[in-house]
Structure formats: C-alpha cells, structure tokens
Amino acid sequence: MNQSSRPFYWMALSLIGVVIAAYILFPIFWLVLASFKTTGELASLPLTFWPQAPTIEAYTALFDETSQSSQLLNWPTLISNSFIVAVSSTILVVFFGTLAGYAFSRLHFPGRDLILGGLLISRMFQGAALLLPTYRLMNSLNLQDSLLGLILLYSAFGLPFATWIIASSLREIPFELEESAMMDGASRLQSMVRIVLPLATPALITAAMWHFVGAWSEFAFASILMESSDNKTVTIGLASFVELFTIEFNRVGAAATLVAMPIMVVFFFGQRYFTRGLLAGAVKG
C-alpha cells in the first residue's frame, strides 16, 4: 500500500469499526437512556431519544424499601451474593491458575503441551449441555442452593482458560530471569513471586477480568442451582425483574445498568492490560 492511500484505508477501517460498535452498543445505550426517563415519557408517542426530564427515580425505587420492586427483590442481597461469588471464584481461579500456569510454562512433564491444549476443549462445550449433569453433581455433593457451591462451580469452569492465558504469558518471560534470581539467592518460589509474577501482571489481570465478568453475568447455572431468595444472584434478580416490570421499562433499564456497572468499572481500569494479556504468546516481543 502506498503512502497516499494509507490515511483513507485507516479512515475506512475506523468507519467500519464505528458502525459495528454503534450496532452493538445502541440497544445498551437505549436501555441506559430509558433508565433516566419517566414511565409516562416511555409510554408516550412519538418516542423520544434523549430523556425530556432526566430523573433517577427508577434507581432510587430499586432501593426504596417501600417500593413494590424492592419488596419483591432484595437488590442489596442480590448484588452482595453476586459480588461474593464473583470475587471469591476470581481469587481462586487466579491463584490456582497461576500455580498451574507456572507448571505448564516452566516444568517439563510428559504430555504437557497436549494437556495445556486440552484445557481449551472444556470451553468448546455448550453450557446448556452441562446443566443437568452439573445439577445432579451439585445435588449429590449437597452444594445446590449454596454460594460456596456456585463459587466452586464457577472456579472449576474458569480455571482452564485462566491457566491457559497465564501459561501463555509466563512462557514469554525468559527463564534466565528466574535462573538469575536463583543465583542471586532466591528460592524457586521467591523467584516466581518476586520476579515472574510482577512481569505477568497483564495476564493475571486479564484472567481475573475475564473470569469476574463471566461469573458476575452468569445466569444459567445460577438459575437452576439457587432456589432460596437469600442465595440468588443479580442475574436471576434481573431476569425476574424483567418479567415483573415489563411495563415500567425505566426500572428494567435502571436494574440492567446497575448490574452492568461492576463490569464497566472492571473494564475501565483493566482495559489497557486486557489486550496485552490476551495477546501474550501470539506475537514475539
């Protein structure tokens, strides 16, 4: 490609990107805008795009104990449960994923690469195919309707991919650095903690973000395993809410925005690491 055509090429690419982003984001944006509208405005014709009289009434109603929505769904409990499950399983996945990733990247054992590749096979199964066996398994272990059960389940599902991301990243870190640390007086564990892991931060953050987002927004397994209202997570709450408040679309919008908030926060702070972490191993540095 010659120099003169390059700007047009990038402009065309950018335009395509903007169109795709708009196509994907418009419904979400519409939902967020709806959360700031009144029920009357939403019901009126013609439809308005921007809120005519922006209000946070739909948000306050979610937590107003006297409101119907709050009486039917305890949002602080739902959020707290989701937070406990997502954070706990993220910690477990990153901790064990780091240990396993280190083993796959540094130790030599028969079938190492085959097993590492095999870890990804677990992601090829549709979740729906695993619903029934998982339910029976959790039931037999007496872990249904338990936050601990959900934490363990999400950790088990998340661990292979986290291990794969972390192992790919650790392979990029020269082993000479660890050898140097060992010559400098560090044990293997010290060289891993003091030298390797700080350099693998993007991969660890990526694995954590990936898992947190998945655990926070998981619906299918939570919906079949969690029965009591004390143990339900936000995604179950949101689904119930949509059924209960279809007419009051501003409240549905507010609830959906609220549920998406932690994910947006996670991506806001971790975005710069995310691409680097995912690309580890893909290109030579």
Binding site: E176, E179, M182, A186, I195
Partner: peptide, 28 residues
C-alpha cells in the same frame, strides 16, 4: 542449590529484572 553455592553469574542477556530500577536490581 544455586543460591547456596556462593557464586554470582552474569548472563548473556544480562537478565536484569525489568520491573526494578538499577539500585533495586543491584540490591536484590
């Protein structure tokens, strides 16, 4: 173990710790 041999080694690729400054590298 290497750490107990009282031997220091300078590697071909220097093997400096990228996340530590010079003082921290030397003091490690």
């Amino acid at each position: 173990h290497p750490k107990s041999r009282d031997i220091a080694m300078v590697f071909q690729n220097y093997a400096l710790y990228p996340h530590m400054n010079v003082a921290k590298n030397m003091g490690f």
